[in-house]
Design a binder for these strands. Structure first.
Length: 282
DNA sequence: ATTGGTTCCTGCTGGC
DNA sequence: TGCCAGCAGGAACCAA
């Protein structure tokens, strides 16, 4: 499930292929994604130049000439695959929804079995105020994020810290995996009331989030279920999970006490799995 | 205003 | 072994 590190890795993979590329062809095979692909998508993009590829939260932003922007989201199972010029391209399968071909012969294929992902169009002028982007919180790896800023946005919030961190308005880019890992890193219980994460605790959480995301980025993301890098390489951060998916295993922080603690627990919060150690996380 | 529940979709898993 | 119900999950949307 692509979260910030995975999306960032995808953007970094796409950039050298798409930067300054001209789109010779755009194929839309499945219009019915999470949001419908705009009717004029192909017409609008044909023979346009891509200036750069950026990320905001979990969104991929392809910046085009003449101030147009493609906003894309990988959803749960979305994938971008690059087929470099001259390489064989396998025939499209039923989940291969959109393709970009550059004048240099490179092909980028967007696939998404579960169709929670999408691609849509906007302009650079409308980007900041776009419905999908305007309420996003700060980038966790950027300068606009700090202990005091996080503490301020958690103030008065009665929801569990787990839910608050999944809320993209609190901070942008975390999903279930990295929320669980960050809370473990900070020693904070996922059940703790968000409003009580203040001061040193908020500071510690910010640091934990930064460490987890940075390590995951270095690892090329986590290859779980569907995720692979655009060049086909697997990310390997999934081998570094301390709690996510580790139900019943010894907590890496207190494994000597396994018989007492029972190790990593799994609970359900807001309909999603949370993994944590009840001894280390308070 | 904030919060929780529902929904979209398909592939995988576990129980019989 | 095979089938199918149930589950997973990002985020918009709706309801309380």
């Amino acid at each position: 499930m692509p979260e910030l590190p995975e999306v960032e890795t995808v953007c970094r993979g796409l950039l050298p292929i798409l930067e300054n590329a001209i789109l010779q062809d755009v194929v839309v095979r499945q219009r019915n994604l999470r949001f419908p692909v705009p009717k004029n998508f192909r017409q609008k993009l044909l023979f346009r130049r891509v200036l750069t590829v950026r990320r905001r939260a979990k969104y991929i932003l392809m910046m085009l000439d003449d101030d147009d922007v493609i906003i894309s989201h990988l959803g749960m199972s979305g994938r971008m695959t690059i087929y470099p010029a001259g390489e064989d391209v396998p025939p499209p399968g039923r989940h291969d929804h959109i393709e970009f071909k550059t004048t240099t012969g490179n092909l980028i294929r967007f696939s998404d079995p579960r169709r929670f992902g999408f691609m849509t169009l906007t302009s650079t002028q409308c980007l900041k105020e776009h419905k999908l982007l305007r309420n996003l919180g700060p980038e966790p790896l950027g300068n606009g994020f700090s202990g005091p800023i996080l503490a301020a946005s958690l103030k008065g919030r009665n929801t569990p810290i787990k839910s608050a961190l999944l809320d993209q308005r609190t901070l942008a880019g975390l999903g279930n995996i990295y929320v669980c890992e960050s809370l473990f890193g900070a020693g904070i219980s996922p059940k703790r009331k968000a409003a009580t994460v203040q001061g040193t605790r908020a500071e510690k959480l910010v640091q934990a989030i930064r460490v987890v995301l940075t390590e995951a980025l270095v690892a090329g993301g986590s290859s779980l279920h569907d995720y692979v890098q655009p060049d086909g390489k697997l990310g390997y951060f999934q081998n570094c999970f301390k709690v996510y998916g580790q139900e019943g295993k010894a907590c890496p922080g207190c494994h000597c006490n396994f018989l007492v603690t029972g190790g990593i627990k799994r609970i359900s919060q807001a309909g999603r799995s949370t993994f944590y150690c009840s001894r280390k996380q308070r």
